[in-house]
Design a binder for these strands. Structure first.
Length: 680
DNA sequence: TTAGGGTTAG
């Protein structure tokens, strides 16, 4: 074969050119053999642009006096791939003014530019151009059109959601509640509602555009279906998305890895592990389980369905892991309460030299918060500042929560005040922080501030404010919020809200009122009754206690806490026979009190305290210290109530403080050195 | 021409 034949073959079958080096060799051959052939030069531009070589492509393009369509569309594609979006649209206009008729390959690139520029109007103009040129039946062009409209629909949807739940930071002034404030709140909501209607119309019309394009298509491929399915999945139209996955089959198209990427998050949201497993089986049968996207989605789906073991299994056999698969397993562990495991994976991720992103920190921070591992939380905070993630709303909210849970409410407030915008979660985190620190005034004031700024309180925000009221004995305010949930926001009170109210009323001695409230619940849970049982014990209402205990045993016959509490109540009332009968019943039923323990971290060791254990080497010293503290407390007027403790069902010990073995948390010193070394 | 992960809960 002569060099000329090879040259022609290469130009006719550009796919055989597998490297940038070969492309440059071909360029040299063209210059040598046919340097002025626009057809050859255009093919060369196309080959260069396939390798994303913008500089080389432009170099050749600028030598052409009247570039053919192939040259234009190759440069346009290369511009888009390099993020030069305005330039891509400029070149399209230049091509049109030179009289060249664009073919169907040009539009996907242009539509991508409009999407990346977030310019819907421009996208609609391009759509008009597509229709005028009669390209609106082309498969690739239609797929790209649907993709563009789908992306805009998601942007509108996300933007609207954020506007609903975000306010500017004006939390530095705390206004008292007045009628004037209520008027402002109402005005804000009526404005919000107007905007809501406009946005709903806008989103609806964009989704109609996606549908219209889809329905007009003479032929659809798997990408067409995937695009519409993803559009529905991302905007919460789950049933529609799943229905379309089933409908694909009627056009003889099988779901591929992209389809599964849309389906798995829906099943995670539905907590439907059975269907999730079916999809997992399908993925294995079709070889998609090696796909890193599917792997991450499976990890996430299993974790959200509380199947951490399955999530770990999928993660452990992943042939390749990227930042997202690591974040998925870290978040999966933490969300399921496996904090140590989550921290270990975070550590391993750093060791694997995967750079943490904001999501990594907002996923791991709740582990520090729930373990009250302040030292680690502070180290991570330092790292967050160094890499500049402290302004991320998710990261900042998780920091607010971590500091509040670790006892540093002032630092939590400082971080909260520094945030430019507050969403519903950050408000709730700081309100709950104040509530758990017993600073109900701040919690309630901030809740009202949040309402003033037009952020709609949610189910969780009401849990927070009612908890605050409960701790401070604010009965009137609590009733106001409890009633406001349904009346103003249409949120049905749940278990947590009833529990806070029952706790509040019980502590205040309003036992009958609490009984009535709990009885009004649809299906009162044992835990809500339990707080009333405890209040009955404190206030010495033994008759009601028996009634309440009966209610608990109806819904939860093996509620250990209720047995123990009732036993103690009988003991306090000197009803020894009843107490003994109950204890006998417990033994018969095999009900045992779960061992509770608390722990304290001293330097790098965590020491756990369990009733009845004398194994710790410093047992005597600890007991001595406890006695000193007890004496001091008694000097200041504390009278220990030993009536109930003496009759504790499972323990014969009078003072249940002893020491158990050390519990080892991950060593954060090691993580700290990684943070410092690798990513500064 | 199409894809995956995050913060608040007595």
């Amino acid at each position: 074969m002569t060099s000329q034949t090879i040259f022609r073959t290469l130009l006719e079958r550009p796919n055989v050119i597998s490297s940038k080096y070969q492309a440059k060799q071909l360029h040299a051959q063209i210059l040598k053999l046919e340097p002025s052939s626009p057809a050859h030069l255009s093919r060369l531009i196309s080959i260069y642009s396939n390798f994303n070589l913008l500089h080389e492509s432009l170099f050749v393009f600028n030598t052409l006096h009247s570039p053919p369509v192939l040259a234009y569309k190759s440069i346009i594609r290369c511009y888009v791939a390099n993020g030069l979006l305005v330039q891509s649209l400029d070149l399209f206009l230049q091509m049109r003014s030179s009289g060249k008729k664009p073919d169907h390959n040009v539009f996907p690139s242009l539509l991508k530019s409009c999407t990346l520029l977030s310019d819907l109007k421009l996208g609609e103009s391009v759509h008009g151009c597509i229709i005028r040129l009669g390209m609106d039946f082309d498969l690739y062009t239609c797929n790209a059109l649907m993709n563009m409209y789908g992306k805009f629909q998601k942007v509108f949807s996300d933007k609207f959601r954020i506007e609903q739940n975000v306010s500017l930071n004006q939390a530095r002034y705390i206004l008292p509640q007045t009628n004037a404030n209520s008027t402002i709140i109402n005005q804000r909501y009526s404005k919000t509602n107007c905007r809501y209607m406009v946005e709903v119309d806008r989103r609806g019309s964009i989704m109609d555009s996606v549908k219209r394009v889809f329905e007009m298509m003479p032929k659809r491929d798997v990408v067409s279906w995937n695009t519409v399915i993803a559009g529905n999945a991302e905007t919460g139209k789950y049933e529609e998305a799943l229905m379309m996955v089933r409908e694909m089959g009627s056009e003889n198209l099988k779901p591929d890895s992209f389809t599964l990427s849309s389906v798995l998050p829906i099943l995670a949201e539905y907590v439907d592990v059975h269907k999730g497993k079916e999809i997992h089986g399908y993925a294995i049968r079709h070889g998609f389980d090696n796909d890193v996207f599917i792997g991450s989605s499976l990890v996430d789906m299993y974790a959200k369905c509380a199947r951490v073991e399955d999530a770990l299994q999928v993660f452990n056999i992943l042939p390749q892991r990227d930042s997202i698969s690591w974040n998925s397993i870290v978040a999966g562990c933490v969300q399921n309460g496996l904090f140590d495991e989550g921290l270990r994976f975070f550590h391993q991720m750093l060791k694997a030299k995967v750079k943490p992103v904001p999501i990594s920190f907002s996923s791991i921070m709740p582990a520090c918060a729930n373990l009250t591992a302040l030292h680690l939380g502070k180290q991570l905070h330092g790292f967050i500042i160094r890499v500049g993630y402290e302004d991320n709303m998710f990261v900042a909210s998780s920091l607010v929560d971590m500091y509040a849970k670790c006892g540093y409410i002032k630092v939590a407030r400082w971080i909260f005040d520094r945030m430019d915008v507050h969403d519903m979660v950050s408000w709730t985190a700081i309100i709950m922080g104040y509530a758990s620190h017993g600073q109900a005034y701040y919690a309630v004031s901030l809740f009202e501030q949040m309402e003033m700024e037009g952020v709609r309180p949610t189910y969780v925000a009401f849990v927070a404010v009612l908890t605050a009221c409960s701790h401070a004995g604010m009965i009137d305010a609590a009733w106001r919020y409890f009633n406001s949930m349904t009346q103003n926001y249409g949120i049905d009170p749940g278990l947590e809200h009833y529990a806070a109210m029952a706790d509040l009323l019980g502590r205040a001695g309003k036992l009958d009122e609490a009984f009535e409230l709990i009885s009004s619940m649809h299906r009162p849970a044992g835990s809500v009754w339990s707080s009333l049982l405890s209040a009955c014990s404190v206030h010495g209402n033994f008759d009601l206690a028996e009634k309440v205990a009966k209610k608990i045993f109806e819904v939860d016959p093996e509620n250990t806490g209720a047995y123990v509490l009732l036993c103690n109540i009988y003991a306090a009332a000197q009803r020894w026979k009843d107490a003994a009968k109950l204890r006998y019943l417990m033994r018969n039923k095999g009900i045992k009190k779960t061992t509770a323990f608390s722990w304290i971290k001293v330097k790098n060791d965590t020491h756990a305290f369990v009733s009845g254990d004398k194994s710790h080497p410093c047992y005597d010293e600890v007991n001595e210290t406890l006695n000193v503290l007890l004496e001091k407390m008694e000097e200041e007027g504390y009278v220990p109530d030993r009536n109930e403790v003496l009759q504790d069902v499972e323990s014969a010990e009078e003072i249940p403080y002893c020491l158990a073995t050390k519990r080892q948390l991950p060593s954060f010193g090691i993580i700290s050195s990684f943070l410092g070394q690798q990513f500064e």
